[in-house]
């Protein structure tokens, strides 16, 4: 019985983390048709900024420990914004006419550059910023202890998902964005400033990536290579759910998270295959992913 609880809660926690990581990727792809290989680097930058700032706050500053959560989120927003603006304005906006494939390669080159840039900026020593994680203590659920920080992450992740959905479906900007997603050419013809929409989306996407990193930072040891590790995971989630769909990312994250949790508890030997297994199965049955739209074939 405990196992049953554990599978559910572990699955929820992992799924909420997966969604955080994947949300920015799917938003950028949905609007801009860029499969952003550098997404993991934004995650890493967010994590590094948060870990170093919060680490500094606790070691050199004797303030209220709860303020560190504000720092965590604040620096992720700033980092994501800065990096997003620099990359969009400095590079990507000149590339929008290139094909989808070349964009993947451009972002791959970005990934290589950012990987070393983070190393130059933050060094290779792992950052171990545990305070925000340890501060919240733990709760006992069904005879098993869980970290409150992880449980809180589920709520935060759900809130971000809801926010994205509301923006996309209940606001004017969202309507315009959906028009761009649906048919870019017609949207331009109707007077939509697609360049502005692209810039905004990209910056929003990088900020989401950085936020995911910052929220994860307190529970891990932030070290080189964490960015590369999350890319494929995020891809898997987004592909399972359907590229470019927020609902898809939520369902994809839940599916992958729950399956993985099941595997860890019941058949740890197959854990390594689970994610790719789910991805292959879903694609075999529904090539466009669970929530992906089939594109009309051009004649």
């Amino acid at each position: 019985m405990t196992t049953f609880y554990a599978i559910f809660i572990d699955g929820m926690i992992y799924a909420s983390w997966l969604f955080l990581v994947a949300a920015g990727l799917t938003v950028i792809y949905g609007v801009m048709r860029i499969l952003n290989m550098a997404h993991g680097s934004f995650y890493a930058i967010g994590a590094y900024c948060a870990a170093s700032l919060v680490g500094w706050y606790f070691s050199d500053f004797d303030g209220n420990p709860y303020l560190s959560y504000l720092l965590l989120i604040g620096c992720a927003l700033v980092a994501g914004l800065v990096v997003g603006v620099v990359i969009e304005q400095g590079l990507l906006r000149f590339m929008y006419k290139r094909n989808e494939l070349l964009m993947i390669i451009i972002t791959y080159a970005l990934l290589l550059i950012l990987e070393d840039a983070t190393k130059l900026a933050f060094g290779v020593d792992p950052y171990f910023t545990y305070q925000p994680y340890a501060l919240l203590g733990r709760s006992d659920i069904g005879g098993l202890a869980f970290a409150n920080y992880d449980l809180l992450l589920v709520v935060v992740s759900a809130a971000i998902g809801l926010f994205c959905w509301l923006v996309l479906n209940r606001t004017h900007i969202g309507k315009v964005l959906r028009a761009v997603i649906h048919d870019r050419e017609v949207a331009v013809a109707m007077g939509v400033n697609v360049r502005l929409m692209f810039a905004g989306t990209f910056i929003f996407g990088t900020t989401l990536g950085a936020l995911a990193g910052a929220l994860t930072a307190p529970s891990i040891s932030v070290s080189p290579g964490i960015g590369v590790e999350v890319i494929v995971l995020a891809f898997a989630v987004v592909v399972v759910g359907g590229l470019g769909s927020i609902e898809g990312a939520i369902v994809g994250a839940l599916l992958v998270g729950m399956t993985r949790s099941l595997a860890v508890h019941l058949a740890p030997q197959i854990e390594l295959f689970v994610i790719y297994g789910v991805m292959s199965l879903v694609l075999a049955v529904r090539p466009q992913g669970l929530f992906g739209r089939t594109l009309a074939r051009k004649i």
């Binding site: 080159a109 290589l112 550059i113 990987e115 070393d116 130059l120």
Partner: peptide, 8 residues
Amino acid sequence: HTWQMILG
């Protein structure tokens, strides 16, 4: 220390 960046 920065060969990936050069490559990029």
